[in-house]
């Protein structure tokens, strides 16, 4: 698996391992590239088709490469949409939601995984339980609540319901569970406060988990459609997906040109966040080495 072999192994064995490794690696690359072709197809089509006129997008059979590439769809998109407003709304909502979840869920996840407190099991049970209720079921009660709090048509109304999500707590709890207790006990023996342990030991060890949570929360928030639509009663609080649906999906027809150009624009920030955060998928410190 790993590319490390140790020096204690006799030389011929190393050579044998090395050449087997090389073959294994080559096979792996072939497989991974093969898989890549299968997974990127629709994305490529989306990207390429966003440069085609509507007629070509709807051609049967579809084409891959644009016959006559054009930026008109993007021009159209930026002309018709009040892009800066929607983008800002989306960004504010997604960033704050993500930061909130990283903070609240890692703290609660730590408590649920490593700290004894009364009501812990009940809390975890409720958290898991709500995760399993389809969200459309709670839409009307949530709206009535938001309305009574005076949060309809505000960005706060879009953020608060998603600021502390069951998904994040479950994720963080599962990851923090795998941090050895001894590590924390050692720190406790040194009279470190729980806050310090959390901040200086747990969080750094959780970097891959936090990156994952960040990626997934940002994506979910950025793409969220139904709630932002319902909770925003005025155009000034619309987010990008709501605005795009407005322009792209008509009563009797879909406008593929706007839709695909919009889909590309919407996906870019998500990819940037992914590329930035996936760097943190690196091994934490070698935990068992610390005693």
């Amino acid at each position: 698996m790993t590319d490390t072999t140790t020096r204690t192994v006799p030389r011929p064995a190393v050579a044998r391992l090395r050449s087997r490794d090389r073959i294994a690696k080559a096979v792996l690359y072939v497989l991974l590239f093969g898989g890549l072709l299968v997974v990127v197809g629709p994305f490529l089509w989306m990207l390429l088709s966003s440069f085609k006129p509507e007629g070509e997008i709807r051609a049967d059979p579809p084409t891959w490469w644009p016959n006559d590439p054009t930026f008109a769809n993007y021009g159209n998109l930026f002309d018709r949409l009040d892009f800066p407003t929607y983008f800002t709304n989306s960004a504010v909502v997604a960033v704050l939601t993500t930061v909130g979840n990283l903070l609240f869920c890692s703290a609660a996840g730590y408590a649920l995984a490593k700290l004894p407190f009364a009501g812990k099991k009940a809390l975890f049970g409720i958290v898991l339980g709500t995760l399993m209720v389809p969200s459309i079921v709670t839409m009307v009660p949530l709206f009535v609540l938001t309305s009574n709090l005076g949060l309809v048509n505000t960005l706060a109304g879009l953020i608060l319901p998603y600021l502390a999500q069951a998904f994040g707590v479950f994720l963080m709890r599962q990851f923090i569970l795998s941090i050895p207790d001894d590590l924390l006990e050692a720190a406790r023996m040194d009279a470190a406060s729980e806050l310090r342990i959390f901040w200086q030991i747990v969080l750094p060890l959780c970097r891959p988990a936090l990156a994952t949570l960040g990626i997934l929360t940002f994506l979910a928030s950025w793409n969220n459609f139904l709630w932002p639509l319902v909770a925003a009663t005025g155009e000034e609080t619309y987010t990008l997906p709501v605005a795009l649906a407005l322009y792209a999906i008509g009563q009797n027809r879909t406008e593929y040109d706007i839709l695909l150009a919009g889909a590309v624009v919407v996906v870019l920030p998500v990819l940037i966040v992914f590329i930035l955060l996936q760097r943190h998928f690196v091994r934490g410190i070698a935990t068992t080495g610390l005693k």
């Binding site: 609240f104 609660a108 408590a111 700290l115 004894p116 407190f117 009364a118 009501g119 729980e194």
Partner: peptide, 11 residues
């Protein structure tokens, strides 16, 4: 207990 709830409370 206190610290536990302290961590879990905002959430």
């Amino acid at each position: 207990w206190l610290t536990g709830w302290g961590f879990a409370l905002p959430f």
